[in-house]
């Protein structure tokens, strides 16, 4: 359940931004969570509601943008879709595939007032 720690990280980024940007209420939080980031989105959303309670993002809507996993095949050098980091290349069936996308964990923006 490291999703709890990750959401606490989001809360700290929000609190820091509130001081910097001078807002007192967050209505929506948009995050990007890659499919290969090891983050369970359901758990993340569940923790979000709990962690934000009593703070400036209490009740805020969470929007999660899921970036698909992408890899580059070591054998045929082509880009391939990657549902899991141990998947073979979709073109030639070889391993290993170097992960080039889908591990993101970012706060994109906040809707505030």
């Amino acid at each position: 359940m490291h999703e709890m720690s990750l959401v606490e990280g989001v809360r700290e980024l929000i609190n820091d931004a509130a001081v910097r940007e001078g807002f007192s209420r967050v209505k929506q939080v948009r995050v990007e969570i890659g499919e290969l980031s090891g983050v369970e989105r359901e758990a993340f959303a569940f923790c979000f509601d709990i962690v934000m309670k009593g703070g400036i993002a209490d009740g805020a809507r969470l929007e999660v943008i899921a970036t698909p996993g992408r890899g580059r095949c070591a054998a045929c050098k082509r880009e391939t879709a990657l549902a899991a980091i141990y998947d073979p290349c979709e073109h030639c069936g070889a391993y290993p595939v170097e992960v080039v996308g889908g591990t993101e964990m970012r706060v994109i923006d906040l809707e505030v007032e």
């Binding site: 990750l6 609190n15 509130a18 007192s24 209420r25 962690v51 703070g55 923006d109």
Partner: peptide, 29 residues
């Protein structure tokens, strides 16, 4: 949830601004 600098100090007066978007583009970690 109450530790570190909290931007919403009790009793602090503030005016409600209109809704706006703040871009963060920051890694959660």
């Amino acid at each position: 949830g109450t530790t570190h600098s909290h931007p919403y100090a009790p009793g602090r007066t503030h005016t409600h601004a209109h809704a706006r978007t703040v871009r963060l583009e920051q890694d959660i970690l």
